[in-house]
Structure formats: structure tokens, C-alpha cells
Amino acid sequence: MPIKSYVAFPRKGEKEQLIKVLENTKHCEVLPATNKEVLVLVTDTKDDQQEEALQQILDSIEEIEHLNLVSGFSEKIT
């Protein structure tokens, strides 16, 4: 159900690695900045359970220095 977007700050020098990790993570889409060590992450999960599981995965990704939540749509989608 929820769609969320984040500004993600990778650990120093690990932007490319982080992009790879996120691209291989289910429910994630990555939009990297072309000139800064930052990327935008959009997540799209089906329900709260899937969302929680994804949160745990994101928490465990070592290349992420900091995730800044920008928007969240939790309304029912038709």
C-alpha cells in the first residue's frame, strides 16, 4: 500500500555500490543525482507487512549513511 520517497545519503565513496544494492532490492527504484553523492529512493510496497520487511532491509544496508523521508502516500490505491 505505501509509496514513499527518500533522499538517501550514501557512506563516503559508496554511492555506486549503494545504487547497485538498491537496484537489486525489491520494491525500490533509485534516481541518483548526477553531480552529488546523493540519491532519491522511491519505495512501493503492497501492504504494511511488506513495508515493515522492506524497512528492516533498508536498516541493514551498510552503504546508507542516512535516509531522509520526504513523502509518503498511504491512502488506498485503486
Binding site: D44, S71, F73
Partner: peptide, 9 residues
Amino acid sequence: LKKAAAASA
């Protein structure tokens, strides 16, 4: 909505 979310980020 995904596009809007990405755009706001």
C-alpha cells in the same frame, strides 16, 4: 503517485 513522490524527494 510514485512520480509525485520521486519529484518531491
